[in-house]
C-alpha cells in the first residue's frame, strides 16, 4: 500500500532572500511559517540567491515554487505566477532569475519541472532582523492564499 507521501505531488518550495535585510527575508519567513503551521510537508530549501547548481536540485522534482520578496507594486501585495524558462544572459551568475535556472535545468537534464514564482511585496530593505508591518500583513495574506492553493493541488 502506498503511503501518503507517494501520492503527493513532488513539490519543492525555494525561499529566496536574507532575513538580515528586513523585508528581503519574506521568502524565508514564508517557509518558516508554512512549516510551523504544518500547512506544507513537502521539501523546502532556503537560498540567499539562486545559483547554477539549483538547476540540478529542481531537476529532481515535478513542481517548484520560488518564493521571494518583490520591490515593485503588486495589486494584492503578493502574486503567484507561472515561471517560464528564460534563455537570457544574466548580469551575474551570483543572482540567477528563476527562469534562467529553469532553462539551465532543461538544457542540462533534458527536462524542467512545472515552476511558479510567489512574489510578496516588500518595502523596507535596510539591514536588520524583522519585517515591516506592511510586509507582515502581505505575508499573512500570501500564506492564507497558498494554504488554499496547496489544498487544491495536493
Amino acid at each position: 500500500m502506498a503511503n501518503r507521501h507517494d501520492l503527493e505531488p513532488e513539490i519543492l518550495l525555494v525561499g529566496i532572500g536574507n532575513s538580515g535585510r528586513s523585508d528581503d527575508g519574506l521568502g524565508w519567513a514564508f517557509l518558516d511559517r508554512i512549516q510551523e503551521e504544518a500547512a506544507f510537508d513537502g521539501q523546502v530549501e532556503y537560498r540567499y540567491q539562486l545559483q547554477v547548481e539549483d538547476a540540478a536540485l529542481i531537476s529532481a522534482v515535478k513542481h517548484v515554487i520560488f518564493v521571494d520578496s518583490y520591490s515593485g507594486e503588486l495589486p494584492d501585495g503578493f502574486q503567484l505566477a507561472r515561471c517560464e524558462p528564460l534563455r537570457e544572459r544574466p548580469f551575474t551568475t551570483h543572482v540567477l532569475p528563476p527562469g534562467v535556472v529553469l532553462s539551465l535545468c532543461r538544457d542540462l537534464y533534458g527536462r524542467a519541472p512545472r515552476a511558479d514564482t510567489l512574489l510578496i511585496q516588500g518595502t523596507c530593505w535596510d539591514l536588520g532582523i524583522g519585517m515591516s508591518p506592511a510586509a507582515e500583513r502581505r505575508l499573512e495574506n500570501a500564506l492564507r492564499f497558498f494554504e488554499s492553493h496547496w489544498r487544491g493541488i495536493r
Binding site: 529566496i16 532572500g17 536574507n18 540567499y48 521571494d68 515593485g72 548580469f91 543572482v95
Partner: peptide, 10 residues
C-alpha cells in the same frame, strides 16, 4: 564582495 537583492532590484 557580495550583496543580496530582491527581484526587480539590482
Amino acid at each position: 564582495s557580495c550583496a543580496t537583492h530582491a527581484m526587480g532590484k539590482m
